[in-house]
Structure formats: C-alpha cells, structure tokens
Write a protein that binds this DNA or RNA. Sequence first.
DNA 1: CATTAACCGAGACGGTACGTCCCGTCTTATC
DNA 2: GATAAGACGGGACGTACCGTCTCGGTTAATG
Lengths: 195, 195, 195, 195
Amino acid sequence: MTDEAQRGGRPRDARVDAAILAATRRLLADVGYGALTMDLVAAHANVGKAAIYRRYAGKQDLVFAAAVHGRTLDPPPDSGDLRTDLRWLVGGVARSLSSPATRAAVPALIADITADDDIADRFLRTFVAEERAYVETILDRAARRGDLRTPADAEVVHSLVLGSIFARIYLLRRPADKAYQHEVTDLLTAMLQPR
Amino acid sequence: MTDEAQRGGRPRDARVDAAILAATRRLLADVGYGALTMDLVAAHANVGKAAIYRRYAGKQDLVFAAAVHGRTLDPPPDSGDLRTDLRWLVGGVARSLSSPATRAAVPALIADITADDDIADRFLRTFVAEERAYVETILDRAARRGDLRTPADAEVVHSLVLGSIFARIYLLRRPADKAYQHEVTDLLTAMLQPR
Amino acid sequence: MTDEAQRGGRPRDARVDAAILAATRRLLADVGYGALTMDLVAAHANVGKAAIYRRYAGKQDLVFAAAVHGRTLDPPPDSGDLRTDLRWLVGGVARSLSSPATRAAVPALIADITADDDIADRFLRTFVAEERAYVETILDRAARRGDLRTPADAEVVHSLVLGSIFARIYLLRRPADKAYQHEVTDLLTAMLQPR
Amino acid sequence: MTDEAQRGGRPRDARVDAAILAATRRLLADVGYGALTMDLVAAHANVGKAAIYRRYAGKQDLVFAAAVHGRTLDPPPDSGDLRTDLRWLVGGVARSLSSPATRAAVPALIADITADDDIADRFLRTFVAEERAYVETILDRAARRGDLRTPADAEVVHSLVLGSIFARIYLLRRPADKAYQHEVTDLLTAMLQPR
DNA sequence: CATTAACCGAGACGGTACGTCCCGTCTTATC
DNA sequence: GATAAGACGGGACGTACCGTCTCGGTTAATG
C-alpha cells in the first residue's frame, strides 16, 4: 500500500506525505491511539481523508508507518567489550520504545500484529530482523574474543533484551531509565560472560 | 463491577454467567479480539446484552475476566535448587500466556492497559504483583542457600522472565515451547548463579 | 422498510418517529433537498443516525415519507356541478404541490422515481392512484348527469390536471395561484362539457 | 461556459467534444443520472476530466447540453387547421421528452432547476420560451381564422400541453404514444374550438 | 400466598468513527 | 495552450459497534 507504482498523472505531493505523518505523530503523543481519528488527522494535516487512504490501508497502517518509521537502530559500534556492546543495545532498544508517539502507538500495534498477518510480517521484517541481526553481531564479536561463556542463541538473547524492556515499559509501566538499563546490562553480561 | 452486592429479588442465573464466559472464550479463539462484539457474545451465549453489562463494566472487563481469570500460578514449590525453581517459573508464565483465548486477548488488553489507568491497576495487582512475589520468593531462597551471585532486583528479574516469554510469543510470534523454556532457564541460571 | 414486524424487545419510540419527520420537513423548507443531510436531520431531531436508517432505507425514502405523508386529498364532495367538482380537484392538487416542504422535495423525488422502481411503485400507489380515482369519480358523476360531452379517459384527464399544475410550479416556476386555478378550471370545463 | 472565447494556442479538439457528449448520452441511457459520474464519463470518452470541465461548468451543465441540445422543435407549419396544429405540437413535445437520454436526464435536471436559479433561467429561455412562442403562434392563427372559442392564455395552454405529456411520462410512467397523443389532441381541440 | 425487586431475552436508543465515493480544482509530463 | 492521468481538499454517505435504556415477562426471597 505504502509504495505503489505510478504511471502518469499528477504525482503524490511529498508535503502531503510529511503533513500526514507529522499530524499522526503529534496526535499520538497528544491524545493517544484511541482518540486518534482519521478525520482528526486529516483536519490537523489540512488534508482530505482520501489523501490518507490513498497512502495507507487504514488506521493501523497509518499508525504503524508513523510510529515505526525511522525508529531503527544504528549499527552497533565495535567497542571491543561485551558489557559496552550490551549497554549500547539496551540503551538503543529502550530509546526506540520510549518516545511519546511510540509509547502511544505500540500497544495498539501489538494488538493489530496479532490480528493481522500482513502487518505482522512487515513488523517482523522491519523491526525485529534488524535488532536480531545486531544481537548476532554482538554475540559473534564476543565469541571471537573468547568473551562468551557458551554459544548462546541470538534469538533467545534478543527476546530477553527486547522483552525485558518492553515488559518494563508496557506491562509493569515503569520507566526504562538509566538505572534500569544499567541493571539489565549487568545481568546480561553476567549471563553471557565466562567465569 | 464483577462482584457487586445484590439485595433482594431474583438472583443471578449461574448458567448465564457460564454461558457468557464460554461464548467469550470461544469467540476470542475463533475470531479474535477485534471481531469480538458484545452483540456477538450475547447472541452466541443466548443472552441479552444487559445480562453481560450487569456483570462486566465493558468489553475490556469481560475479556479480562474471560482470558485472565484463573490463570494465576500456583505458589512456587521449594525444590532446593535455583535451576529447578526457575524452570517452574518459566514454565508457568509460558503456560499462562499460551492458551488460545489468552493469545487472542492479551495484546488488546495491553492496549487497553495503556489507555485506561483503572484496568492497569487491576492488571498490575492481579497478575503482576503475584508473579513478582514468586520471583522474590525464589531469589530469597537462593540467597539463603548462598546460591546467588549477588543480590538481584526481583522486579528486574521479573521483567526478564515475563518480558522474554511475552516477546517470544507476541512480538517474535514463535512458540514458547519446551526447548525455548529450557534455553531461557539455562541463561537465567547462569545469570544468577555464582562462579 | 417503513412498516416491519417486531417480535420482542424494546418497541420503536413514536416520539422518535415524529421528531425525524418534523426535522426533515423543517429542513426541507429551510435549506432545501440538496443541503439536507442525514447527519443534519439526526442532529435536529436529537436522534442517532441509526434510528433514521432503522426506519428508512436512505435519504430518498426519508424525504418521500416526510414530503408525501398526509398530502392525500379528501374525497371529492359531490357538488352536482362539473365546474365546481373540477375547481375542487384543481385546488386540491395545487395545494398539495405548493407547501414549502413539498416544493423542496418533489423535484428530487421525481428524479428518484425515475431511477428506482421501488419508490416509483410506492409513489404510483400512494399518490397517483388516489387522485386518478377521484378524477374517475368526478367524470362518472358528470356522465350520469349528462354533463359530459363524450366518455373521456380518466387517466388522460388526470395527466392534464396534475401535469398542468406540476408544469406551472416546477417547470415554468410560477405560482399556481387562484387566478391560474380559475383559468385551468374554465378550460377543463370547456373541454369536457357538451356544446 | 459552453461557448467561451479562445484566444491563441492549440485549438480544442472537436473529436474530444463529440466523445464527451456521446459518452454522456450513452451513460445516461445505460446507468441513469445518479450513477453518471464525471470520472466515468471521462473514462468512457477516453478523455481527461479537465477536458470536460474546460467545456462545461459541471455535471448539470454537461447533462443539460447532452440531453437537451438540439431537442428544440421546428417552427410550427401553418396547416390552416387548429386540430392539425395541435397534433404537431403535442407530437413534437412528446418526441422531445421521449428519447432514452432525455428520459434519464430530465428528472434530475428538474431537481437542479429548482435548486439553482442560473440553470433555471437557461432552461426557461432555451426550452420553455420557444415552446410558449409556438403555442402563441398557433393560438393567434386560430383566432384570426375565428377558430377559437375565446382568447385563451398561451402560458396556461402551454402548461396543459407540456405538463400533461410530462406527467404521462415521468409521473404516471406510461408511454406518450400515438394513441395518447391523439386523445390529448382531441381534448385540447374541444377545449379551444367554438361550439 | 401475595408482593416485590431484581432478573431475563430482545432490541431500539444516542453517539461516534469508520472507510467509500463523488465533486470540482490543481499539477504533472506530453504533444 | 490543449491533452490524459490522476492527486488534491472537502464533504455526505451508509455501516458498525459501544454502552444505555425500555419493553414484556420470569423467578426467587420476603412479608
């Protein structure tokens, strides 16, 4: 839906794209997912509803695009130290889940992911795969340094990192602040390092 | 709302209670949370909508009751061994998140939790507090046995256990099966045990 | 649509029926057919849109009911004189086509009649058949009195009466006032009387 | 709007003019006024929407042009006989209201006439004034021949002729065929002739 | 045993958001 | 400057669901 071909005729206006996403993010932060209405987005973006539906299949699609876009991590810098690498990872995940728009959107998105395989696939490819690859990179580096107790499954480690921060914010409803990040990093380091 | 007093008059029909919950669970598993309509529940339970609203404050309340009620863990048996205690904990959490009705309900419930502080409090008290207490119990026992590397924060450990399994099922969309439970248990044991 | 059976449950509220029709008639007269919106009717009637759609299949159906209901003529009194009978007929038709709500609704209704056979049938049975029967009654009386030049087809005479007044108001856009009614009555009398 | 000046540049393509009108007439006959969409006309004519709006002010203007243009009567031949003149008039009006495209367009046009004074004026001048002049001509001739009972108002007679045929087709929904035309002509002749 | 209060199924109620459709205008690149 | 294509702002449509209310009728505990 987001990226369709276009033969002739008037091209899509990039300013409209931007206005829609900006309005969506602002409204997510201001009024939350539940009170975010397509008419409201259209009004705030000074845009017709049709312009939104031309770009996104529906509310879920729009919110997914607005909340997820640009939330990807930078590639992990090689610090030469497992603890530092993990701190970077934990910090990055915490940051990407903590912005106001994301905080408002993610829970409803999780619900949609469970209900709609299309969005699920997109979410897995966009979000999850990248993070998982970074976990793998960090584990490989540590293994090459002899810094790893035993070969750990990257997917399981990823579920520990992503899941603990997700649970902290969305289930326990407490901030994933520096102190929390530090504690989790320590525990993960202890879990993975030899001795 | 779920358990209000009732002075005189005709008492509530227990068969209606059962029919409502059964229909809700069946529909959660069959059509999911989004397509679960109060009218649909009423129709499938051969019940008037008022009978549902007499018992539950709304859709969220109903689904919470149908999906979560009775999902609490047994108190943790004292196995005298940290690894065994953790295996029991991981298995219990995985089981409580894996039933079809729960799988359909939890994501939407998370969304509601974020939007509604009332239901959030209930969720935290019902679900989270109990699990957290069990984590604390397990950690205390291990500490008394000298089986713990260092005093770990129960809340953080809880977020690791709950979060990793939640992420496995609802974010990565893979089963939290025995193999996965085993791996997580091993990693948590390594994380917490001395040496 | 307008008159469906109803087994159990809460019965339709007659005040809602009345409020919908009153609001529709008022809005027809005030803003015209084009600016008459279902949401506007609902708002003015303090009624939900669903309450309207439960009663009427759409805007056409609603306007038809609001504009046509109660517009039927009284049975023709037997004056013993063809000219007087015709004057009553012409006056009645002119009156029924001249009210503000009717003036606003009829043209659009004609358009709908052409497009939708269901509404056409209803219109023919409700409106046309009655008028035609009255024409027939008047012609029969005149014939029995020997007051008729030659047996005239009631349907053709009806098309002359109804059509001329309709054309006067809606095509030539001039009022079907007393003077016009008098002239038409004279011509029709001349047309039908012997000599 | 229909005939504006055009200074320089590329002249309008006459094939486009024809394609637009042909598509409009075909669609009027096939799907009716309500389902006739500007996009649909453009698509069927293989033409851009702008090409239509460059020629016509809107849907009403287009349909008016497509359905009404060229529908004007020839001037009434002087037959020297009132009945023959009336037969010609009745036949001409019936013919001009009976073509499929006209049948689909006229009712909606009536609705627009009521709502929009601009189009009403155009309609009155184009259509009505001409017919009325012809009625006047016929009456004048008859009067000069002494063939008229009494000086009848041309406008009223016009409303009788136009209205009866209009009602026959659009309100009673029966064909204005030869038999009907004959009857109406007879009645009108009786109405106007002396004795 | 009669009363009474709360129950019951059914479904109408006000309200609100949805996603679709069409209008008439505007913006491309092409001829 | 006309053309085909199609995006644009605006706005009404008819549908669906929520949570409340109303109807006629039923069922147990109280007086």
